[in-house]
Amino acid sequence: MSDTKAETAYKSLSSILTNTPPSSQNPASSLLYDPEISSQVSALLRHPNSGAGDDNLCRWLYDTFQSSDPQLQLVVVRFLPIIAGVYLSRVTLRKPLAGFEAVLLALYSHETTSRKGQSLTVNVPDLSHPSIYHESKASSKNNATDLNLAVISPSLEPHGTVRSTRRARIVGVALELYYSKIPQMPVGSKIEFCEFCQAWAGQDGDMRKDGNGGDEAINQKVGISKEGRIPLPWELLQPVLRILGHCLLGSNKKNRELYEAACCASRSLYARSLHDINPNAILATGSLVRLAKMGLDSQNDQVDHTEVPWTRVISL
């Protein structure tokens, strides 16, 4: 049944694109990873008239995600950076973007249903209680190790439309879904996300290169236009930073192009945070910039200090 849905989706997309490669034995995988298909879909999503209510590609993305097939849903999530990037950059132009909004609402509704009214939380150990790793100076009346609950993402309310007051939250939740699937996302999708982060920041970020060291290619001027600058409330910025953190420290760290794009995006967002004088954003983006610098230093340092030296001599 899943293969039938994938084949139907592939044939439907073929009628929208100008040229598609022959269908493979795994059409869902081709839709997700084929560079030719991704290039054509990306070009259509970036078209000046894309995102309207009668946009055939947006309708295909919406129907494909609503198919409830996990593999096909990944295909839609793969193009979320472009959808969110183009949508947020154009929303102030008062252009009809009902097609983009329908896709974003589908992703938001999916997350709302999946979470079942629960917020996303993490348990942070209470350091006032001693553990096997540390001793507590203050005496505790209760020997039990209490856990502090930190809310990463509050509970969601169902929304049928995208209003200006809800826009950042809806897009942010869609990006949280992207982050949860990011190990399965192709590198090209992550690079596109980093590029849009630079556009959203509206700051060059090149001001931070002095004293940071690193590769010359990373320190060169980005040259992003300020036309894409958007408001960055915390509910939107937080998932953005989590995705960038994965790009800096995740399994794809060996991909030089992705790593450089994530470094540039981090510096641009840091410059934007300094410009806005946003303490929370300054702390978070500054941490990403330092992580990027540490990553560059570790790449330049070829010595593995954890490796035990090998020798034929036995020391007593």
Rank of each mutant, 00 (worst) to 15 (best):
A102D: 13
A265R: 12
T165H: 11
P35S: 08
R94A: 11
V76H: 08
G211E: 09
L107Q: 03
S30H: 08
R208H: 13
I82E: 11
Y33V: 01
V76I: 10
I277K: 15
T92R: 15
L274N: 06
Y259I: 08
K137L: 15
I218R: 13
Q184M: 11
Q71C: 14
T285C: 15
P186E: 08
T285S: 10
A217E: 15
A102G: 09
P81V: 04
S136H: 07
T8D: 14
R242Y: 12
P35C: 05
S153I: 08
K253W: 13
D34R: 02
N26R: 11
D55P: 10
M1A: 12
E101W: 00
I314A: 09
V308K: 12
L32D: 00
Q73T: 00
L283E: 09
E227Y: 04
P96M: 04
Q198N: 04
V103F: 04
S155E: 11
S2T: 08
Q238K: 15
L291S: 12
G286T: 08
R59F: 01
Y108Q: 04
T4N: 10
L17C: 08
L17R: 09
E111D: 07
H275S: 09
P231A: 00
V162G: 00
Q198M: 12
G213R: 03
N212Q: 08
E235L: 06
Y62K: 12
Q118F: 14
S89L: 07
I82W: 03
P22D: 11
S225T: 05
S131T: 14
